[in-house]
Design a protein around this nucleic acid. Sequence first.
RNA 1: GGGUCAAUAGCUCAGUUGGAUAGAGCACACGCCUUCUAAGCGUGGGGUCGGGAGUUCGAAUCUCUUUUGGCCCA
Length: 568
Amino acid sequence: MTNFKLEIAKKISQIVNLEEKEIENYIEIPKEINNGDYAFPCFKLARSLKKSPIDIADNIKENIELDEKIFTNIEVVGGYLNFFVNKELFAEEVLQSVSQNDEYGKSEIGKGKNIVIDYSSPNIAKTFHIGHLRTTVIGSALYNIYKYLGYNVTGINHIGDYGTQFGKLIEGYKRWGTEYNLEENPIEKLTEIYVRISNACKEDETILEECRNNFKKLEEGEPYCKELWKKFKDVSLKEFQKVYDILGTKFDSWNGEAFYIDKMGEVVELLEKSGKLVESQGAKIIDLEDKGMAPCIIEKTNGSSTYATRDLAAILYRARTYDYDKALYVTSYEQVLHFKQIFEVAKLLGLDEKYIKGLEHISYGMVLLETGKMSTRDGNVIKLEDLLNEAIQRAEKIIEEKNPNLENKDEVAKKVGIGAVIFNDLANSRVKDEIFNWNNVLNFQGETGPYIQYTYVRTKSIVEKAGGVPDIKDIKVKYLQDDISSKIIKLIYNFEDILTQVVDKNEPSILSRYLIEVAKNYSNFYNENKIIVDDSEIQNTRVYVTYAVGKILKIGSKLLGIEMPDKM
RNA sequence: GGGUCAAUAGCUCAGUUGGAUAGAGCACACGCCUUCUAAGCGUGGGGUCGGGAGUUCGAAUCUCUUUUGGCCCA
């Protein structure tokens, strides 16, 4: 493909005394279509050249020698130099590159780079609720997109399968285990047991003592405790898997916290060697006051480990095992300080600087209920499974209304319902909090997943009706000169750039927004133009654009973790 | 108290390194299905970009300050 920006930069640098690179950076893409395809703002040169921006623009315009095949026009508008590219050439190149590539937008820019993404990571024996959705879908989307750009990606579900709460659960199960049938509804039952034993602990210190004792035994590897712990873990994972199956979430590693139990000793040793590990009130800490942070506790007063120690052990392990260039942690912003501390302390582990630089916390906003924060303890959580099922049901109802004769209704309802839920969580910037509202999440109109699916289904049905994808040789780009067509071509061209933006910022919403934009413009195109017409040149051209749009929508959605139905 | 993130239309949000007239969706009102799927398209109203100061050719965007809210730490 012609690099238009570079072309402009080259020519301008011949006239003004600036590096190509710098000029390329200044060149922007006008919002208004009347202002051309690329613009060079001359204001930045005004001071150094001691001339008015308009004079500079005029001067460049007069002296620049652009290839007329590539650019059709240059205009000076209020200090801007606006460039108009040859629409026909542009459209031809863009459609050409779509046609040659089944995996349009795929690239090798990440070749040789290893990315580790830690996402989802739920706690054993706790409800998988709507709050866990964001980490799961954001992590998955990043996983897919990094991979598409050629990175070698490892997805890790860092299960929360360790901690003092297991001492309690074991005690509860020892006491009343026979009263609960864990097979039936494991997590609910375990939660009940947990609440019951917690209350019992509050009333009777000796019970709490027993719980602590159990945890100690678990750490020492006492068989019965270990067996129970394993049981809790197994039934929980089975529950989680149900949700992952519905969402289509995959992981390469399920190494959770327990995996690092025997790897924490080394962390303590290394920190001790660094000389920074100090005693404070009986605990071992790393003081971070000079960094403006609270101290990082490595070992508690009673000698037991902390989250921090496990995370540090994980960093060591991941650096050695995956030789990562980036290690991403997708968790809510509640943990911002925690990761800041961990990343600071990680500098003391003697790892190569590369591994420290690669650590990145991908934080996102909270999911709140209208009544406030969710709490497993208080039982005011919305189970993710319930949400997904409700979404599927609503989709079914709409299909029944709009398209009762549709085949595979169940399958389509699933794709649409789940698509709506996933898209809803990926559509906004990560930082935004989300106040959960059934009607918002399960809205299928406007800027939603189903809207993209609907648009895709349309493209699919048109291509089918036209008798398949036309040969690229049979299209005439002169029919794509109008504003809407140009906009669509430009959007298709931008796809790869959008994907690189996503990984630059670790922000999948950039892709979500883009897909909406594509769908919207195509819907516009669809309503303005009849696509299947008598004139075969016009038809072939429009069908080809339709096909290209469908391709983008499908690839893009797939990267977000959203499946496309063929009909809906 | 310290740190941190946010604040843009009635609601939910976009707004690329500062750039041309601040944009969508929802909701509301009206219009568009005998021809490619109306889960769609179009038109319309609706704004002190939380307030104030500064930086400069130019600020929703950067700096300072202030208000409100979320989160984390003690």
